[in-house]
């Protein structure tokens, strides 16, 4: 399914865990330190470096771009490290996150309450994913190097819905489908 950013509630309500999407539009990058700073700014009532409403944050710290390329290799990092921060951003109107690995109950609850989707991109295929990124520009926290906030323009960026707003969780469903029942396991 092809979707575009910013994400609307109309699109979000139609997405279910396991849906494969191709995203075209803008993604913002942020990792641990950038999240920490953004949440600090929210708590202190400061204006954020970009408007979160309707946006998707991609948890990634890319490799440096080679000359002539918009960006280096750029696959997802482990999302769980962002769990302490994500609910604050979701409350501010963030509508999507792309990373890898499971999320905490607090994040999943905030997503259901405020209508936000958690997508995974395939971890470790960073060269392949970089081909979908057409433009990259550092827009905040330049001192963080790879961990700076970048505005990415992407075309048909492949992702899969892990957590929808209805309690669906592809990690749990996938494992349940393929794990051997205890009775058939070798003991």
């Amino acid at each position: 399914m092809k979707i575009t950013t910013p994400l609307t509630d109309n699109v979000i309500t139609g997405l279910k865990a396991g849906d494969r999407v191709e995203i075209t539009g803008v993604l913002y990058t942020a990792r641990d330190v950038a999240h920490k700073r953004l949440v600090q700014m929210i708590k202190e009532g400061e204006k954020l470096p970009f408007d979160l409403r309707g946006q998707i944050i991609y948890f990634v710290g890319p490799t440096p771009a080679k000359p002539g390329m918009p960006i280096g290799s750029a696959g997802p990092t482990t999302s769980g490290r962002m769990d302490p921060y994500s609910p604050y951003l979701i409350e501010q109107g963030l509508k999507g996150m792309i990373g890898k690995g499971g999320r905490s109950k607090e994040v999943v609850d905030a997503m259901a309450e405020h209508k936000c989707i958690y997508f995974a991109a395939v971890g470790g295929v960073a060269a392949l994913l970089s081909k979908k990124i057409k433009k990259a520009e550092v827009i905040a926290f330049e001192d963080l190097g790879t961990e700076a906030v970048r505005r990415l323009e992407v075309e048909d960026f492949p992702a899969i819905v892990i957590n929808d707003i209805y309690g669906g969780d592809l990690y749990k469903e996938g494992v349940a489908r393929y794990s051997s029942p205890p009775s058939s396991r070798i003991l």
Partner: peptide, 26 residues
């Protein structure tokens, strides 16, 4: 889906090798 992921992993290694870029951002 697992097969598709494995195919992407293999394609990624071809792209990285051919274009001289890191397999993973980490």
């Amino acid at each position: 889906l697992g097969q598709e992921v494995l195919r992407q992993i293999m394609e990624n290694s071809q792209i990285a090798g051919k274009e001289g870029m890191p397999l993973c951002q980490d």
